[in-house]
């Protein structure tokens, strides 16, 4: 995305057009953000069909709430926020999410009371070898809760700014740090465990 389109989409004039539901402005918006939204769905582990369905729901919601959009955050951030909500809804339908996360105890349990390693990390060469097996990584990523996966996707993969990610996930910076910490360590443990 070029800086030029970014400026256009945040401008007051453009927002006014969106609110007035001018079809040319809407079309431009849809043609710009459908692909990144769709890709994010795939990144979150939804299949092609479900991803299409999700993206359509996102736009549907966006058109419903657009007249109330204040323009306090970038439209891209706003859209990804809707996507995250829709994706969570879908996942919640699929399964219930645990509040506490066992990965924190796992990380703790690897240290003695003095803070020394009891069960030290494996050799990096070995780790690299394991983590190059894409199948293994995929399995491990599929084991992440949605919030962690979304945070990880946006942060490590997509290089979105921290404040935008916090707005999308509706968390504080501290909470985002926790999510990323859990995701990173859960993945590390998972890869290490795979033989």
């Amino acid at each position: 995305m070029s800086a030029k389109t970014d400026i256009n989409f945040s401008s007051v004039e453009f927002l006014a057009k969106i609110k007035k539901r001018e079809s040319e402005a809407i079309s431009r918006l849809v043609r710009t953000y459908t692909e990144p939204l769709y890709n994010a769905c795939l990144g979150l582990g939804f299949n092609g069909e479900t991803s299409e369905e999700l993206v359509q729901r996102v736009w549907g919601t966006f058109f419903d709430v657009a007249p109330k959009f204040q323009g306090r955050s970038h439209i891209r951030t706003f859209l990804f926020g809707i996507l995250y909500n829709k994706a969570s809804e879908l996942r919640r339908e699929q399964k219930k999410i645990n509040k506490s996360d066992p990965i924190e105890t796992t990380v703790e349990s690897r240290f003695s009371e003095e803070g020394h390693w009891i069960n030290p990390p494996i050799d990096p060469e070995q780790f690299l070898h394991k983590s190059q097996m894409l199948e293994i990584i995929k399995e491990c990523i599929d084991g992440l809760p949605l919030s962690q996966r979304m945070a990880f996707c946006l942060k490590e993969i997509d290089d979105q700014g921290t404040s935008d990610i916090c707005k999308i996930l509706e968390v504080t910076t501290t909470n985002l740090g926790v999510l990323l910490y859990r995701a990173r360590n859960r993945l590390r443990e998972c890869i290490e465990k795979k033989a």
Binding site: I122, D123, P124, S131, R184, I191, E192
Partner: peptide
């Protein structure tokens, strides 16, 4: 080793 894992990831 741990630090290298993070970097590889």
């Amino acid at each position: 080793n741990y630090a290298k894992h993070l970097a590889y990831m």
